[in-house]
Design a protein around this nucleic acid. Structure first.
Length: 222
DNA sequence: GCGACAG
DNA sequence: ATCTTGTCGC
């Protein structure tokens, strides 16, 4: 992936400014069909140790899920962890890592929420809008909303994640008898399409292979 | 005021 | 997220 725009965003902002930015950019999230065919999916994750963040991106090709590209970037964390403002903590480390890729992924997947967020603008949305590319959020726990109805125990089972009367995500069982993950729209995808793709990316583990690989890479030293 | 709260 | 050993189960 080649160099993106010079100053996509100023990350040194107050929490109030961050919330205003989220509310403004949330209106730019669009829903549309995901590209189909033998695509490449980039998993993104960030690990933090002693105020230093290491972002990692692992690009996998479907349907085999072979790793075809990787990149990392380390920097000081510029923002504390505040529920709802995760993107302001992790994006500064993620963007430089993306610029180091040798290819341009078709879809981006983050280990966080997209629209399943207080202002409907989680990290997956922020990434998708800044890159203007398809993005999906896959979190391991709920930030807002509640599962609608009971989720079946079988792999592939799914129920809506509803917040304030609005479907903001999908509770998806990627492994039989294992806790589900929470999928939500980041940008340029439909909720069902996102859940379908994440299921295709989880042939063996609960966590989709792209973010699973990125998680390992973010924890690796270097 | 109290509890909840992605990573 | 991170700090951490052993342990139950396929």
């Amino acid at each position: 992936m080649q160099d993106s725009r010079p100053h996509p965003h100023d990350w040194n902002v107050s929490t109030d400014e961050a919330k205003r930015i989220q509310r403004r950019l949330a209106s730019e999230v669009t829903e549309r069909a995901l590209p189909d065919g033998g695509e490449t999916v980039a998993g993104i994750d960030v690990s933090v140790r002693d105020d230093t963040a290491q972002a990692a991106v692992s690009v996998l090709r479907l349907p085999e899920l072979d790793v075809v590209d990787e990149a990392t970037h380390r920097c000081e964390v510029p923002f504390p962890y505040v529920p709802g403002l995760l993107s302001f903590r992790e994006m500064p480390a993620v963007l430089p890592a993306l610029e180091r890729l040798h290819s341009t992924p078709d879809v981006f997947v983050t280990d966080s929420h997209g629209a399943a967020h207080p202002r409907r603008f989680g990290l997956a949305c922020h990434l998708g809008v800044l890159l203007d590319a398809p993005a999906i959020g896959v979190a391991k726990s709920i930030l807002v909303g509640a599962p609608q109805g009971e989720l079946g125990p079988e792999k592939g089972s799914r129920v809506p994640l509803v917040d304030d009367g609005e479907t903001v995500g999908t509770v998806l069982r990627t492994r039989t008898d294992v806790n589900p993950v929470y999928v939500s729209v980041g940008h340029r995808c439909t909720l069902d399409g996102a859940a379908d793709l994440m299921l295709d990316c989880s042939p063996r583990y609960k966590i989709p292979e792209p973010t699973r690989q990125a998680h390992k890479l973010s924890r690796a030293e270097g």
